[in-house]
Structure formats: C-alpha cells, structure tokens
Amino acid sequence: MSSIVVQSFVTLDGVVQGPGGPEEDTEGGFQHGGWQFDYDGDGTIAEWEKKTEALLLGRRTYEIFAGSWGVWPEDADGFQGELTRRYNRIPKYVASRSLTEVGWKNSYLLGPDVPGAVERLRGEPGGEIRVWGSTELIRTLAEHDQIDEYRLLVHPLVLGVGKKLFGDGFPSTRLALVESRSTASGVVINVYRRAAEATTRA
C-alpha cells in the first residue's frame, strides 16, 4: 500500500497560496507571494522528502513544478540539487481537465476518473505519494477519504487574502495530531492522521 501525504506551508488564517515566490501564483491578484521565505527552516522538509516516492499534483502546481524543479540543474549544490534529482526520477501523477500531454519526464495524466486512479495508486506497493499545493485536488481527495496524512508547517502570519487549504465547503474530516514541534522563528510543524488510524500508525 502507498500513502497519500499532503504537505503544505500555511498561514495562521489558512492561506497556502504562493509561498515559494512573488510570481508563483498570482491568481486573484494575490500580492504576497514568497511569504514563506521570511521564516527559518530546520531541515524538516529535507527529511520528509527523502520518503517521497511519487508526486500527485493538480494542473497549476504541476506547471509550477515543471517550470522549476523540472528544468533546474541536477548538479546544483545542497538540497536544491538533491530534490531536483529526486523529482526528475520519481513518477509525477497529474490531475487535469485541460492538459492533453505532460512534458516533464516520468509524468502521467490521471485521466477523467481521478478518485479511481488515485485509489489504484494507493493500492500499489510503494511509499509516500506527496501532494504539494493543488488545493482543488486536495478537496477532491478529501471528499473520497483518500488522504492518509497532513503535514502542515503553520507560519505565525495572517495575510487576510488568498487560497486556503480548508476553504468553505471542505468535507468534514476528523483528524488526530500525532506530532507537533516549533522552529526558532515560530513555525509550528503539525502532523495529522485519520483519527481512527493514528493509534495504530503512530
């Protein structure tokens, strides 16, 4: 079995839009891109990404990743090079109603039945299938109870505008907190699993 794991940088008011840079996602006139870079990292993401065996992405996030990780040099120093090599190697599964082809190597369109395709992926041997960004896809996965774990890096910041991870209409979900710690700059790292599974998987 594989696990669907959502990872996200998130503000106190739930915004997940554009953490990686000013031009990453300006939809809706969003002007706060790159807000995540004002806070320290403690190596958590690097450790988590060592477990990533596949990416599961919505169209917009896929295009952002393909235009960055998909073209950056694999011989770059440090974490950027390490993650570029990993992301190029592993399969990328893309949920899209508009794309007819995907150019980043080892990328695959899921087709019209996204929940069905994801359920097949979950049933295959493997490890963690990582979801970044992709708020619409995450909602679809939650509606079909296909998310095994949320890893949220909650930043001490209120933006007041932007796409939210858990927006109005998100399906009711009961989770259990299985890990929590904070960084020196006040980022709280929380890991949640389904309440029924937390005790058996912790």
Rank of each mutant, 00 (worst) to 15 (best):
E82T: 15
T84N: 10
R85I: 07
R85V: 01
R86H: 13
Y87M: 15
R89C: 02
I90E: 04
Y93A: 11
Y93C: 04
V94Q: 09
V94I: 14
A95C: 10
S96W: 05
S98R: 14
L99N: 14
L99F: 07
L99Q: 09
L99I: 06
E101D: 15
V102Y: 11
G103F: 10
W104P: 13
K105Q: 13
K105P: 15
S107Y: 11
Y108Q: 15
Y108S: 12
L109V: 05
L109R: 00
L109Y: 08
L110C: 11
P112M: 04
D113R: 12
V114T: 02
V114G: 06
G116M: 02
G116S: 00
A117W: 04
V118G: 01
L121I: 02
G123Q: 06
G123C: 04
E124F: 03
E124P: 06
P125I: 01
G126I: 01
R130C: 15
V131K: 03
W132G: 15
G133Y: 00
G133P: 09
S134H: 05
T135W: 02
T135D: 10
T135M: 11
E136P: 12
E136M: 12
E136N: 15
I138D: 09
T140N: 12
T140C: 06
L141N: 13
L141E: 05
A142N: 13
A142H: 01
E143L: 00
H144M: 04
H144V: 02
D145F: 00
D145R: 03
D145V: 07
Q146M: 11
Q146K: 08
D148A: 06
D148V: 02
Y150E: 10
L152A: 06
L153H: 14
L153A: 12
V154A: 09
V154W: 08
H155P: 06
H155G: 04
P156K: 07
V158E: 07
L159T: 10
G160F: 03
G160M: 09
G160N: 05
V161A: 13
G162C: 11
G162D: 08
K163Q: 13
L165T: 00
L165W: 00
L165N: 01
L165C: 01
G169Q: 03
F170K: 05
P171S: 11
P171Q: 08
S172I: 09
S172E: 14
T173F: 05
T173P: 05
R174E: 14
L175P: 09
A176C: 14
L177S: 03
V178N: 00
E179D: 13
E179G: 07
